[in-house]
Design a binder for these strands. Structure first.
Length: 305
DNA sequence: TAGAGACCTGA
DNA sequence: CAGGTCTCT
């Protein structure tokens, strides 16, 4: 009998990563990643990326901690650090956002302490957002779950990883449709074939500067500006990426007075206003709009075009 | 860098 | 109708 995958011991996250429960939920299940489930009645989140399966919970002391298993039973600490980008200068980036002159941004930052951008595996991020068109988070998660169960290798007993693009290239489009993908099945199938024909395309794209990487991504079927920016922001650490979805459109319209602006115009405004880490600002504005937007109808003072 | 409709399926 | 893209006018 093969060695059973073993859990690492529960390990505390560093004090620099101390989100409250609501912010943790926003990080894990707010639309960046589609592979987290929770919290259980005991407050445990479980999720997976690549070959890693992890759990996150709050110790009675209040400290956030994690444990994980990996498919080949190597120490998962490095994988966890990379995924949560624990070695990055979040405090510095936060301080360099224009919160001093932007009261709404300051409010968003205050509302989600330690909100982070995840650094997910590039290929998986692409897969997730290729499925995201006109779908809610719940439905995207369902698609990912079916893809993993039916076409991904097991990483631990009962747990399957997402299929690699190589594996996806071997799945007929009709079979993909059975994973609730709908018209997105064609995008994924065709993308898989292209990636198969060019084995280092993903790695080269991930390592390319923002503008180049975005152009490359946009050449894939089903990938437009919004999806490309999500993939680069959540799967490549490109903080310049500024995805404009309906929430950001609404937020910039209602909070910044940009009624009637097109997505392209809003994107230009976002990069100019929020600066080189616009993608980070975007995450706060996005989270705030989803959670609190309804309680704050558009401000009459800014509601002029 | 305009606007409309199609594309799948299910909450 | 839904966190988008593609295509055509």
């Amino acid at each position: 009998m093969p060695a059973l995958a073993a859990w690492s011991a529960w390990t505390a996250f560093p004090p620099s990563f101390a989100p409250d429960d609501s912010t943790l939920a926003e990080i894990l299940d707010g639309g960046q990643a589609f592979r987290w489930y929770g919290p259980t009645e005991h407050g445990v989140w479980s999720g997976s990326w690549g070959d890693t399966f992890a759990e996150v919970r709050r110790h009675p002391s209040g400290v956030l901690e994690w444990r994980a298993v990996t498919a080949d039973a190597r120490d998962p600490a490095a994988a966890v650090h990379r995924y949560f980008a624990l070695d990055q200068d979040w405090a510095g980036w936060m301080d360099r956002l224009p919160w001093r002159s932007d009261a709404h941004l300051a409010r968003c930052q205050a509302a989600f302490p330690h909100l982070r951008l995840l650094r997910q595996p590039f290929g998986e991020t692409l897969l997730g957002f290729l499925c995201s068109a006109t779908k809610q988070i719940l439905q995207i998660k369902q698609m990912m779950r079916l893809l993993a169960e039916r076409h991904g290798e097991p990483v631990a007993p009962g747990i399957h990883r997402l299929p690699t693009w190589d594996a996806l290239a071997r799945v007929p489009e009709a079979e993909l449709r059975r994973c609730l993908l709908g018209f997105r099945a064609r995008y994924i199938h065709e993308t898989a074939l292209r990636l198969q024909a060019e084995p280092d395309w993903l790695a080269v794209t991930e390592a390319s500067p923002y503008a180049v990487a975005k152009e490359r991504l946009c050449s894939l079927p089903g990938v437009g500006e919004k999806v490309a920016d999500c993939v680069l922001l959540f799967g490549a650490g490109q903080l310049e990426a500024f995805p404009v979805d309906v929430w950001i459109l609404r937020a910039l319209s209602d909070r910044y007075g940009l009624q009637g602006w097109s997505p392209a115009q809003v994107a230009r405004f976002g990069r100019a206003h929020f600066g080189p880490h616009a993608g980070l600002a975007q995450q706060f504005v996005f989270a705030w709009e989803r959670r609190h937007g309804k309680a704050f109808p558009p401000d009459a003072a800014t509601a002029r075009t």
